[in-house]
Lab assay of single mutants.
Amino acid sequence: LKKVVALYDYMPMNANDLQLRKGDEYFILEESNLPWWRARDKNGQEGYIPSNYVTEAE
């Protein structure tokens, strides 16, 4: 899975979204639905995130 790091905080707009915290790492599960990607956080929560809020992890 592709790993990304959040560049900004993101508060979910609806139940399908995943909250982002700046500096945290996330795994990308699906990239087909631009600009929204399906992601999983370190706690196993899954949801959609804005792809322009993250960058690929080193």
Results as ranks from 00 to 15, higher is better:
L1S: 07
L1N: 07
L1H: 09
L1A: 07
K2A: 04
K2Q: 05
K2L: 07
K3M: 09
V4T: 03
V5M: 08
V5P: 01
A6C: 04
A6P: 00
A6G: 03
L7K: 06
Y8N: 07
Y8L: 10
D9I: 02
D9K: 02
D9E: 04
Y10D: 01
M11E: 14
M11A: 13
M11T: 14
P12Y: 02
P12H: 03
M13G: 08
M13S: 11
M13A: 11
N14A: 10
A15Y: 10
A15C: 11
A15G: 10
N16A: 12
D17T: 09
D17M: 15
L18I: 05
L20R: 00
R21I: 15
K22P: 03
K22A: 13
G23Y: 05
D24C: 12
D24P: 00
D24V: 07
D24I: 05
E25H: 14
E25T: 14
Y26W: 00
F27A: 06
F27W: 15
I28T: 02
I28E: 00
I28D: 00
L29A: 03
L29Q: 03
E30C: 10
E30P: 03
E30V: 07
E30I: 07
E31L: 09
E31T: 11
E31I: 11
N33W: 10
N33R: 11
N33P: 14
N33A: 14
N33G: 11
L34Y: 14
L34N: 14
L34P: 13
P35Q: 15
W36S: 07
W36T: 08
W36I: 08
W37C: 08
W37H: 05
R38S: 06
A39R: 00
A39V: 12
R40A: 07
R40D: 02
R40P: 01
D41M: 02
D41Y: 02
D41E: 03
D41K: 02
K42Q: 11
K42S: 11
K42W: 07
K42R: 11
K42I: 10
N43A: 10
Q45N: 15
Q45A: 13
E46P: 02
G47W: 02
G47K: 01
Y48M: 14
I49E: 00
I49S: 00
I49D: 00
P50A: 04
P50K: 06
P50L: 10
S51L: 06
N52P: 05
N52T: 12
Y53A: 09
Y53R: 05
V54N: 01
V54L: 04
T55F: 10
T55G: 09
T55M: 14
E56H: 10
E56V: 13
E56F: 13
E56S: 13
A57G: 10
E58F: 14
E58A: 14
